[in-house]
């Protein structure tokens, strides 16, 4: 840097050469020259004026725009903050924040249901809890995405982001939430040992099965059909297992796993059907 004039602050005067000023405006200066230049600009009104004249108002306006955008931007909701802390990208967290069943009211309903079924499991039979817990993610997914339950469904369908991807994101969010809560509720059943997490596989299978039926019947009807079928299956195989429904013994779980695999293949095959639904309302 060169210069011989005195600055308004006193001291030996110098000013930033034109070339360096231009490189600074173009963000092409590298440290430590960058730091030196910025320190000088902070103290020298004349160089600040030269900088303004040299680069015009656009960068400053852009800076104000960016600042205004940041100030206008809404503060992330608690659920968004939680998700971003867990490593979810900011934009995905915002998409998930709009998932209807991630609201406090739904989560409270899930907690109450799990508490009641865990209590009934103590009183009656562990199968009460094992049969009820898998129905929660099925209901959650049905109420998360679809023509009658998602107010922005129609806008989502015509957006470039694949509808199927949005659906899977919401499914993952619902499954994560209900699985965490159900796992916590399982801790209230220590006397059943590992059998207390027998709900996990049915939860995955029933959710996948309801997704496979969604393109044909819609999310709500598909969930109702799968839920009813599950209850009928549990009731009809009651006593066929070791003092409980056969679906919770290893052979029953294996059959469920096979069903889930087939359902997953069907979902993958039908994924395009989610992009242009046959019905909107």
């Amino acid at each position: 840097m060169t210069g011989e004039e005195e600055t308004p602050m006193g001291g030996l005067g110098w000013h930033i050469p034109d070339g360096e000023l231009r490189r600074y405006a173009d963000r092409a200066l590298a440290p430590p020259l960058l730091w030196s230049t910025e320190a000088h600009l902070a103290a020298c009104a004349r160089c600040r004026h030269r900088l303004t004249v040299a680069v015009g108002p656009e960068p400053v306006d852009g800076g104000w725009d960016r600042l205004a955008a940041e100030m206008d931007a809404p503060a992330p909701r608690p659920i968004e903050r939680l998700l971003t802390r867990a490593g979810v990208p900011e934009h995905t967290a915002r998409l998930l924040a709009a998932t209807p069943v991630l609201r406090l009211s739904w989560l409270a309903a899930v907690v109450i249901t799990l508490a009641l079924t865990a209590f009934l499991a103590h009183l009656a039979h562990p199968a009460v809890f094992l049969a009820a817990a898998p129905l929660l993610p099925v209901a959650g997914v049905a109420l998360s995405f679809g023509p009658r339950v998602d107010p922005t469904y129609e806008i989502s369908v015509v957006a470039p982001m694949h509808t199927f991807r949005l659906l899977l994101l919401r499914c993952a969010a619902v499954l994560s939430a209900t699985t965490g809560l159900s796992a916590a509720a399982s801790l209230a059943l220590p006397e059943f040992g590992l059998a207390a997490v027998g709900w996990f596989l049915p939860a995955l299978v029933l959710t996948t099965l309801s997704l496979a039926l969604t393109p044909r019947f819609g999310p709500v009807l598909a969930a109702v059909a799968v839920g009813a079928g599950w209850v009928a299956l549990v009731a009809s195989t009651w006593g066929a297992g070791e003092a409980g429904p056969a679906v919770f013994v290893p052979a029953g779980q294996l059959a469920l796993a096979l069903t889930g695999g087939l359902a997953a293949l069907t979902v993958a095959r039908l994924r395009r059907a989610f992009e242009t639904p046959r019905r909107i309302r």
Partner: peptide
Amino acid sequence: FEFVDYVAILK
């Protein structure tokens, strides 16, 4: 703002 932001992410 949040609603338009949400749609912008979908886009």
